[in-house]
Design a protein around this nucleic acid. Structure first.
Lengths: 128, 128
DNA sequence: CCGGATCCCCATGGATACTG
DNA sequence: CAGTATCCATGGGGATCCGG
């Protein structure tokens, strides 16, 4: 079980790849994951549609991202036995639920980005 | 103003380093930032205390992390003109506010990590 | 004690070419 | 169409040494 020791695991394991927080942080910190989740919000998309949506990422990289999301149960991959092939990706319930914390980050980013930009400006001024 | 076009900038700029969401995502996706913010929750700490707290990170890397956080106005760096030197780091109001979205991620991670682990297990089984 | 300067390593993103 | 195979460039994390 993973329960108990809530205040413990954070400090002790955040550097450990098996730490829950680290796990999720690595996932949403990924360059493409968040965008893929966003694109799939209204339903399944085909590989090509996703690729177009993320703005020309290399197929290899998109595949890696999708495979990781599938492995973690955040989306399901469906292969249609056709010629030419057709493969669709759709968020699971778990995948949809991930949109919540992502939204929290987006909201924070929206409301505080000017403070960050300002801070950078002042810092650049001080530095020269 | 950053308002309006909420559904616009997300799609168009998430790959752009200047996109607010990308900015914050890169920050909290960083290996050490989240832990540093956590350690500083109750007040300022010295460089050495932070280093000890994050579990033996290279000084160079910790410095990079702290400098980035300082640059973005998330913490303040205070140098005491002493021999031997003493430098403390303390979260700003902005830095403290960042703990909210981070907490959202932690909460999600806590309540859903078993689903992820289970999914990985099943995937490993299917794969062999 | 703080942390800058260097050098190293390799994981990751990406471009290109090819295939069922 | 949906990938896989291959090679390459980049840079971030880390170890070590040194200096204020």
């Amino acid at each position: 079980m993973v329960t108990e020791q809530v205040s413990e695991w954070f400090r002790g394991d955040i550097t450990d790849p098996n730490c829950p927080t680290r796990l999720v942080l690595d996932r949403i910190g990924d360059k493409w994951t968040v965008l893929v989740v966003h694109l799939l919000r209204d339903g399944p998309l085909r590989f090509g549609e996703l690729r177009e949506g993320v703005g020309g990422v290399a197929a290899k990289v998109l595949t890696q991202t999708l495979r990781a999301l599938e492995r973690d149960g955040l989306l399901v991959r469906t292969v249609y036995p056709q010629i030419p092939p057709k493969v669709t990706y759709e968020l699971t319930t778990l995948g949809h639920s991930l949109r919540e914390p992502i939204q929290a980050v987006r909201d924070w980013a929206e409301s505080h980005v000017h403070e960050i930009v300002t801070a950078r400006g002042e810092h650049a001024t001080r530095t020269g």
